[in-house]
Design a protein around this nucleic acid. Structure first.
Lengths: 199, 199
DNA sequence: GCCGTCGCTGACCCCGCGGTCAAGGCGTCC
DNA sequence: GGACGCCTTGACCGCGGGGTCAGCGACGGC
């Protein structure tokens, strides 16, 4: 599967991945042709098929890599924090920070989510983070004697908030990440009705 | 633009729309060919182009109609309710009820949101509902002296929650709509940290 | 200098797509 | 019955897509 590559080869491969990521994010999967990708780098078509099996395989690879990277960022941010609520907050903030740093990858995930062919990849990539999040929610409910709620639903709701705010405010008019993160955290924790209290 | 159709013609047209809606929802825009649509109804290809200008135009029409229909449902549900928080709740519930009744249309909206070609249609369709929602949020904040928050961000967050919960729980697992709606409302209003209180 | 391996070329193939159109029913009204 | 207009047919077109492949450097080891 994994082909042996010299440093030179690896460089080309990375070029292709980087360029393809940008194009996929900008124009979607179907509207980005292989011809476009190679001509964008000024190379022949064969180069593409030297490094990748197919356009689809490349897309999936980028997608998977992005999801792994995001997951790493989340893990690193959460670290060994004990308080479940705080873990959730750190997860939210690190996710938004990652999206802010990788707008193309996030866009690509959105594209993938809208395509039947790739949707299950997205779901699979989310699953683990979602399970973790659900656990934290469950812990939080137990620890703090909160109202009973299905942890998975709450976890999904949080993902919904984060995804939506990121998709709306980060790429368009560059709202400061921190402001968006603050809003996301405040909403997820306190909802609409939270009384004003120490910020 | 709008062609005159006899009752028979209108019936065919509706058949095509219904079938296309299902196919688009199931397989996406690109992976649903015109040939597939017509052969699914056992008619010739010309039939399609007798009723529609193009595949794209048909898709956009279905999309627009779905969004208008959803909006009508929301309006009807909210009616003349005065309390902004209650208006928001009614909006959430009616949206989820609509999605539950029209899974294909909702799926189609998701598909459209992931395609660069149609994304702006989706946004445009959301805009009005979003503005309304923002107003309600603003009113709620003023009325109840809640913590200051950007109404638009809160509105987007609410849409995020509703969209995500609908997309995850309604089509796959046949979760009862009311349960999902209760969870969505509870989360949007009280967030994670809301203490337990009268259900 | 020679040869092998890695990287690259780009013309080419085949296919399926969206879309067209000349021609042929079929219903209806006179 | 004839004529007209709505509806339908399906072979056909051009195009651009993903993917292939025989052959051409070019560089490094011997």
């Amino acid at each position: 599967m994994g082909k042996q590559l010299t440093p030179r080869g690896r460089q080309r491969r990375d070029q292709l991945i980087a360029f393809a990521t940008a194009r996929f994010a900008e124009r979607g999967y179907h509207d980005t042709s292989v011809a476009e990708l190679v001509s964008g780098l000024g190379v022949g078509k064969g180069v593409f098929y030297w490094y990748f099996e197919s356009k689809e395989q490349l897309f999936v690879e980028i997608l998977r890599q992005a999801q792994l990277d995001l997951r790493d960022a989340q893990r690193a941010a959460i670290g060994s924090e004990r308080d479940p609520v705080r873990r959730i907050e750190l997860g939210i903030r690190s996710t938004l920070a990652w999206i802010d740093r990788h707008p193309d990858h996030n866009e690509l995930i959105r594209v993938a989510a809208g395509d039947d062919r790739f949707r299950h990849h997205v779901r699979r990539g989310e699953e683990i983070a979602l399970d973790d999040l659900s656990k934290h929610v469950k812990d939080a409910i137990v620890d703090r004697d909160l109202r009973h709620a299905d942890p998975e639903m709450v976890a999904q709701a949080i993902l919904g908030v984060v995804g939506r705010l990121a998709g709306t405010f980060l790429p368009g008019r560059g709202a400061p990440v921190d402001a968006v993160a603050d809003a996301a955290v405040a909403f997820c924790l306190g909802g609409l009705l939270a009384e004003q209290h120490a910020k």
